[in-house]
Amino acid sequence: MARRRDLWTGAAPGANPFALPRGPLGWVAGRVLARTNRTQNAEVAGFLRALGGTSVLEVGHGPGILVELLARQYDTTVTGVDPSTEMVRMARGRNAEAVRAGRVRLWRASAEATGCDDASMDLVVSVNTVAMWPFLDEGLAEFQRVLRPGGRAVVTWHRYPPRFALTSEELDTVEAAMRKRFGAAERDRLPSSVVLSAAR
């Protein structure tokens, strides 16, 4: 991929419509993300199913594909937050019936300030957003805050295509930050994703 900005230095994602979808171009980016990330979201949903738990928060839900899949597999409310107004609208449209039924809650918020209550979630997951967070540890601190004891934090990123993948050093940085915050972390490889997870 093109040279990536330095990660987790406080820099904003800039004008890239895939990093922070805004306006009409952001809406188009959301449609593209819904199509291109569907397989990856499905395999992450399968990974989360094996972890158990009932209450789930997705941080950076984008067009709402994983929210939709999680709402089908969990019996309680699925919460999603995203910093993009366009993506919140798109995800609400995709999950309109579940939103009306109170099984899905979606609002605009960031990784470091989700607006969720302390110790309110069994699972917190981020798919392909960790490289857009301004500060890595602040996002992981928020994951820790909202997780119940025994809950799991899950951070995933693309494996393919290679131009989108994080470098081994960047993945090591995320894993080390999770170990520092949670005491331990695990790394798994799914067909399309690298998965980093830790228990509260």
Rank of each mutant, 00 (worst) to 15 (best):
Y160Q: 12
E175F: 07
S84E: 00
E170T: 00
M132N: 15
S126V: 02
L69M: 12
R100I: 02
L70K: 08
R103I: 10
R31M: 12
F18E: 05
E112R: 00
V146Q: 01
V130C: 03
R100V: 02
T76L: 11
T76K: 13
G151H: 06
A29W: 06
A2Q: 09
L136C: 12
D82Y: 09
L171R: 15
A91Y: 06
A11T: 10
A98P: 08
W157K: 09
M90Y: 08
E186H: 14
T36G: 10
R145K: 07
V195N: 02
V67W: 10
W133V: 04
D82A: 00
T156S: 15
E68A: 15
D188S: 15
S110K: 05
P24D: 08
V99Q: 07
T85K: 07
S84G: 01
D137G: 09
V56F: 13
Q144Y: 11
R145A: 08
L51N: 03
V56A: 09
S168T: 15
V195E: 01
A91F: 10
V67L: 13
R49N: 07
Y160A: 12
S120Q: 07
Y74L: 10
M178N: 03
E43K: 03
L70P: 08
A98H: 06
F143H: 04
E169Q: 14
W157V: 14
D118P: 08
P191F: 09
E86H: 01
E169G: 12
E138L: 14
E86I: 06
R5D: 12
S110L: 05
A96S: 15
R179F: 04
Q40R: 14
G151W: 01
R152F: 12
T77S: 08
G60V: 01
Q40G: 14
G102N: 02
A111P: 05
N128D: 15
S197H: 00
D137T: 15
M90D: 03
S55W: 01
A101P: 07
S168L: 13
L190A: 03
S192Q: 15
L140C: 02
M90H: 05
R3G: 10
G53T: 01
L70A: 09
V124L: 02
G102D: 02
G14Y: 12
T156H: 05
H158T: 10
Q73V: 11
A153K: 03
R31T: 09
E138K: 13
R152Q: 14
N41P: 07
A185V: 07
N16K: 03
L7K: 04
G52F: 02
R89P: 06
V81G: 07
R189P: 04
A177G: 05
V127W: 00
V155N: 01
G183T: 05
F164P: 04
F135S: 00
T167Q: 10
A101V: 08
T54V: 13
P134A: 00
